[in-house]
Computed example of a mutant assay.
Amino acid sequence: MQLRRVEVPAQAAHRPVRTGGRAARRHAARRARRGSVGVLLCRLTGELFITAGVLMLLFVAYQLWWTNVRALQQAGGAAHHLQSRWDEDGQGAADRDAGDFSPGEGFAILYIPSLDVKAPIAEGVGKQKVLDRGMVGHYGEPSGALKTAMPWDKQGNFALAGHRNTHGEPFRYVNRLKPGDKIVVETRSAFYTYEMTSRLDQTSPANVTVIAPVPAGSGFRGPGRYITLTTCTPEFTSTYRLIVWGKMVDERPRSKGKPDALVN
């Protein structure tokens, strides 16, 4: 059999061959849809991460800034209210007995001149009623290991707790106190001046012996009139407690004016 040459029209020679045209278009459409879904998911994930980051930044700002602003306002108002009430009571007004104060009730003002600290002292160490309001709390449970003395008691340990970070952070820098630095407590009737003597950089939160009448680890050998400051450590954690101790060196009626530690 002989092969024959077949002439192809010119137009047919240049016409593109269509093979699987519809299938290819459907495949391309599916790829486009998958691409669109992928892009949408990527965008959504990115927006979620950005939103989460913004929320975290707002929370950090709330903790580190706004809680301090609010607590300092509350503490400043409480201190002013205390001093105004004492002035109205006049000279000679006596301090109330230990146990007469309800939880969260302010009864004194703490000064640490070397740290520029002034904070009201309230009964109890609860967070909501006392510590988170920028106040310093007095360990004064009616009974048990957390009951400690008042400044006007003739002997005993006046033990206090305060935040080291956030909510006014009155005890932020108590680790900088040095032996001889003064700590002053003002009450309705008197100023009580203590002198810092020693510090315990770290102990368990369960170690209540540090606020005993003669606190363990303080170096005190017998009964006296002491003060103990307790706060959390390391900073921004509550894993351990930092303890500062002092002993009373002066008692001065308010009628005689401020002690030297608050004047110089």
Rank of each mutant, 00 (worst) to 15 (best):
E7G: 03
F220Y: 07
Y139H: 06
H81T: 15
V263K: 13
R176C: 07
T187I: 03
R96N: 06
A93V: 05
Y139K: 02
S143P: 00
H14G: 08
G92I: 05
A10K: 05
Q83N: 10
G106W: 07
A23L: 13
A93C: 02
P205I: 01
N157F: 03
R18M: 14
N68D: 14
M56V: 15
M1A: 14
L48M: 14
P113H: 14
G144W: 02
R85M: 12
Q11E: 11
Y111A: 09
L58T: 07
D250T: 15
Q11T: 15
Q63F: 12
A261C: 06
D100E: 15
K127H: 11
R70G: 01
Q128T: 13
N165K: 10
A93S: 10
F191K: 06
T231F: 04
R30D: 12
E123P: 04
K247M: 12
V263E: 14
R85N: 14
L177G: 04
R221C: 03
V210W: 11
P213R: 00
F101K: 07
R43Q: 12
E141R: 09
L177T: 10
T19H: 07
T228Y: 08
G144I: 01
L40T: 09
V117G: 05
T237K: 00
T166W: 12
T45N: 13
P205F: 02
H80E: 10
A79T: 04
A12K: 13
M135I: 00
T203V: 11
D250Q: 15
G162S: 05
S189T: 12
V174T: 07
P253E: 05
M56C: 15
Q202Y: 08
D89H: 13
T209W: 09
P223W: 07
P103K: 00
V39C: 05
G99A: 00
A29Y: 03
G219R: 05
A61W: 13
G106P: 13
N207T: 10
G77I: 00
